[in-house]
């Protein structure tokens, strides 16, 4: 039987290890990212010498070297490169993606695969996500339980600042950083996009933010804050990835072995104040743009 993993990042590394150790034999993994130094504090299938290589390929190689009985097929590219025929071959899909857009895409794809007359076409989607000491796991049976789109309004999304504040009344260091990236950068580098992996670009943003902040008597600009705001960095640690990935894989294991009840259908974990978990059944939305009416 064939499973697959989307995203070989923090959750993906854990998911591949868990599936391989739980006896899954045929796994596909898709990831469009390459390995970066800042991944190494948690993405344990990668080493310093792997920086710059495809996450999917390195992860697959590493796990197959440790566990000989598993076959992992990596794909270095986007989810969207693959068509329905490709997705039809799998028993279930586990996603450890870091973008809402990619999650929405795979969710919609799996909902559209469902043929009401053929239960085989229902591919469970198990989705995990983390932020710092917190995380969540969702089990989605397309058209049978709430889909990813149905639960979209539970997401807080990225913080944005009104343009007039950024341009006229900056008060926080973040406002100065937005000014540097949204207004000063295009002025100084017309037509060129910011690449936060290029140190010169980051230096430009840092200096422009600092200058702006000094002009307005605002304190608190650091290089780390500049990077955090511009790249929308979400704190991430190995521990939380382990918890959420294992929850996802445990649900996958229960689904394929039909051994125990599966999570119905949403679990939140928080380790900031003691340990707190909360599970609840998210209801399908009758007017959901993706699965409503199906």
């Amino acid at each position: 039987m064939s499973r697959r993993v989307l995203g070989a990042g923090g959750l993906g590394c854990e998911i591949l290890k868990n599936l391989a150790c739980s006896g899954f034999k045929d796994i596909h993994v898709i990831d469009m990212d390459t390995i970066d130094l800042s991944n190494l504090n948690r993405q344990f299938l990668f080493r310093h010498s792997d920086i710059g290589r495809s996450k999917a390929e390195v992860a697959a190689e590493f796990v197959m070297k440790r566990v000989k009985s598993v076959k992992i097929t990596p794909y270095f590219g986007k989810l969207q490169d693959k068509d329905e025929e490709y997705y039809k071959q799998f028993t279930l899909v586990i996603s450890g993606l870091d973008s809402i857009e990619a999650r929405r895409w795979i969710n919609a794809k799996l909902v559209h695969l469902v043929d009401p007359d053929n239960f085989e076409t229902v591919k469970p989607l198990i989705d995990g996500g983390t932020e710092g000491f917190r995380g969540q796991a969702k089990v989605i049976f397309p058209t049978f339980s709430a889909c990813y789109e149905c639960s979209l309004d539970t997401l807080s999304g990225q913080t944005t600042y009104p343009l007039c504040t950024i341009a006229n009344n900056p008060r926080l260091p973040e406002h100065c950083i937005e000014f540097a990236s949204q207004i000063e950068w295009p002025k100084a580098h017309p037509g060129e996009k910011i690449d936060t992996d290029v140190p010169e670009h980051v230096t430009f943003l840092y200096e422009a933010s600092l200058k702006r902040a000094e002009e307005f008597n605002i304190t608190g600009i650091t290089r780390s804050l500049v990077l955090g705001v511009v790249k929308n960095i979400i704190p991430a640690i190995a521990s939380t990835n382990a918890i959420i990935a294992a929850s996802c894989c445990n649900e996958a294991f229960k689904i394929v072995s039909s051994s125990n009840p599966t999570l119905d259908n949403f679990m939140m974990y928080s380790g900031t104040d003691s340990v707190f978990t909360y599970s609840f059944a998210y209801e399908r939305k009758p007017d959901c743009q993706v699965c409503g009416g199906l």
């Binding site: 854990e14 290890k17 868990n18 150790c21 739980s22 190995a238 521990s239 939380t240 990835n241 382990a242 918890i243 959420i244 990935a245 294992a246 929850s247 894989c249 445990n250 294991f253 380790g271 340990v275």
Partner: peptide
């Protein structure tokens, strides 16, 4: 079980 060990190791 690997999944449970991994989860408890995470906690």
């Amino acid at each position: 079980l690997n999944n449970i060990a991994s989860l408890m190791g995470g906690i």
